[in-house]
């Protein structure tokens, strides 16, 4: 299991388009990927659940990744978050 956290920098928070891209990216890995923030937690492969968290700018989100490809998943997710959010 690997964890990392990231503070959302985007003005609109984790808005729909990047959320969609995030789900796409997460779905490419076999590991379970959970995203946790102050409003609760959600499976990063489920878009509606992710959007329901209503993550805004400044939120600290914590990723928990567990599975065979967890290292690759974390690397890809971290890069994605930095680039898009």
């Amino acid at each position: 299991m690997v964890q990392f956290s990231y503070v959302i920098n985007d003005e609109l928070g984790l808005h729909a388009r990047p959320a969609g891209l995030l789900v796409k990216l997460a779905s490419g890995f076999t590991s379970t990927i959970t995203l946790k923030c102050e409003n609760g937690e959600a499976d990063a492969k489920r878009l509606i659940a992710l959007m329901k968290l209503g993550i805004q700018k400044g939120s600290n989100v914590q990723f928990t990744v567990a599975g065979d490809d967890e290292k690759e998943a974390v690397a890809a997710l971290e890069q994605f978050m930095k680039e898009k959010l």
């Binding site: 729909a16 388009r17 959320a19 969609g20 891209l21 789900v23 796409k24 489920r46 878009l47 509606i48 659940a49």
Partner: peptide, 19 residues
């Protein structure tokens, strides 16, 4: 490209297991 992403997003919502 970027404005087209809205349709990809809607497609994902349609296929979402929660829905």
């Amino acid at each position: 490209k970027e404005s087209a992403e809205i349709f990809t997003m809607q497609k994902m919502l349609l296929l979402d297991p929660d829905f």
